[in-house]
């Protein structure tokens, strides 16, 4: 079974002064992760929130495979952090920022993550399969109320998902009893071969879902989404 997890941190929403206090960051990163910090790569507070988003994305990915798993940042271990130049990635020319890759161990499961750091947000995606099969996006929204965040991210992902269904159908997002989102087609068919994940923080929403490679050819058209 494939799984995926995404997490976004809106950098304007975080308290930078608090983030750099040992009392704060020691609840998120381990001593080994602290030792890996490279001051030339990014400010320290961004490193902390990068690791937070990597760990949260990995936790979301793992919790689909291990229901009931609790999020424990200091027991979710990040290693082998490195930069994958955009030109070498599969995200295409539209992505201007480098992709940061990392390895994560969460409750015995080894996952890989891809992250993008911009001046406004950090987004991380963890998946069990190939990143070639991941469709993801980040959008700015005007109203950061949680109800609007939730509505907007669902609207965006449903519009994108419809590109992969050659026949018109009614797509809805439901939740499993563990609270994980799932795709429901025509009110009854659960498409659990396309796991998806949402995240929102402040004025940013993000989604990621797995498109099995054999489905990619089904994409019928690729109009830009509203606001793109």
């Amino acid at each position: 079974m494939n799984s995926i997890g995404i997490d976004i941190v809106a950098l304007h929403e975080v308290d930078i002064q608090r983030t750099v206090l040992p009392q704060f960051y020691s609840k998120i990163i381990t001593a080994a992760e602290l030792a890996c910090y490279d001051a030339a790569a990014m400010p320290f507070y961004q490193y902390i929130w990068l690791l937070w988003s990597v760990k949260e994305a990995a936790y979301k990915c793992a919790s689909r495979l291990q229901p009931g798993l609790l999020f424990s940042p200091t027991r979710t271990l990040v290693s082998n952090i490195s930069i994958l130049a955009t030109a070498a990635s599969n995200y295409g020319p539209e992505l201007q920022d480098d992709v940061i890759i990392a390895q994560v161990e969460v409750n015995g499961l080894q996952l890989h993550t891809h992250s993008v750091v911009t001046e406004n947000y950090i987004v991380s995606i963890a998946c069990t399969g190939s990143f070639d099969e991941v469709q993801w996006d980040v959008r700015h929204i005007d109203d950061p109320h949680p109800d609007n965040q939730s509505a907007m991210v669902r609207q965006l992902v449903i519009k994108e998902l419809q590109e992969y269904y050659p026949q018109p159908c009614n797509i809805a997002i439901a939740k499993t009893i563990e609270g994980l989102p799932i795709i429901v087609r025509d009110d009854s068919i659960v498409d659990d071969n396309m796991p998806l994940s949402f995240s929102h923080h402040g004025h940013y929403v993000a989604y990621a879902f797995v498109v099995p490679r054999r489905f990619k050819c089904l994409k019928v058209h690729s109009e830009p989404l509203p606001g793109s």
């Binding site: 997490d7 941190v9 929403e13 975080v14 308290d15 608090r18 009392q23 704060f24 609840k27 998120i28 929130w49 937070w52 949260e56 999020f71 949680p146 609270g179 929102h200 923080h201």
Partner: peptide, 19 residues
């Protein structure tokens, strides 16, 4: 998170404030 809609990124803040 589910009822009060507190963002998970603020959970550490809650712990620090409780401390």
């Amino acid at each position: 998170i589910k009822d009060l809609k507190i963002n998970s990124a603020n959970l550490v803040d809650v712990i620090i404030d409780a401390e």
